[in-house]
């Protein structure tokens, strides 16, 4: 645990250090380079800001309206057919939509059922192995003004589903 903590907190400083040392050794104007790059960053943020507001509005609506419980109830026959524990369902549904909401839901599941219980372990594995799909797609496409995403959402959701199903099956074997 300590080693892992150390590695994860050392990663960013080490990378910055290496890059700066390389830049100095190759006699570049390191600070000018930095400022030039950082200036470009402002444009990127401005471009994704309106998308963020929109996404947060929609996600906030879903979270606060209570409709999630209804959806979970509605699809429970399908999920129980695949052997997905119903306790995991709120997490599985929220995970692709909202990062902060899924962190909250996962923490809630782990507190309720026990962090080292089978359900808690499945929730942890899902949290660690998936990303906030909708948000990622929205940010990556809006920064270059793309409107048509073809099959990207379906492919990404397939990957999410396979990862989640794998987590459930794996812990059934392990515990």
């Amino acid at each position: 645990m300590n080693i892992i903590n150390y590695i994860s907190s050392a990663a960013i400083p080490v990378i910055i250090l290496l890059i700066v040392i390389y830049g100095v050794m190759e006699k570049n104007k390191v600070f000018d380079n930095f400022v030039e790059g950082a200036t470009e960053g402002i444009g990127i943020v401005l471009k994704i800001f309106p998308t963020l507001i929109g996404i947060f509005l929609a996600v906030g609506a879903i979270r606060s309206s209570g409709i999630l419980d209804l959806i979970i109830k509605a699809i429970s026959p399908i999920t129980s057919f695949f052997g997905i524990p119903s306790e995991i369902m709120p997490l599985a549904l929220v995970r692709p939509i909202s990062g902060s909401a899924s962190t909250a839901v996962a923490t809630d599941i782990m507190t309720t059922f026990g962090v080292d219980s089978k359900i808690g372990l499945i929730a942890s594995t899902i949290m660690g192995s998936t990303e906030t799909t909708f948000y990622t797609i929205a940010i990556y496409t809006s920064c270059v003004g793309i409107k048509k995403i073809r099959f990207v959402l379906i492919a990404a959701l397939i990957a999410d589903f396979v990862g989640m199903a794998f987590s459930v099956i794996l812990w059934r074997f392990l515990s």
């Binding site: 990378i15 910055i16 890059i19 700066v20 390389y22 830049g23 190759e26 570049n28 390191v30 380079n33 930095f34 400022v35 030039e36 790059g37 950082a38 200036t39 470009e40 960053g41 402002i42 990127i44 943020v45 994704i48």
Partner: peptide, 18 residues
Amino acid sequence: FLGTICLWNGIMKIAQNT
């Protein structure tokens, strides 16, 4: 975002010239 994106764009610019 404004902070991190500008920071990493800057660091990356240094890296790109090495």
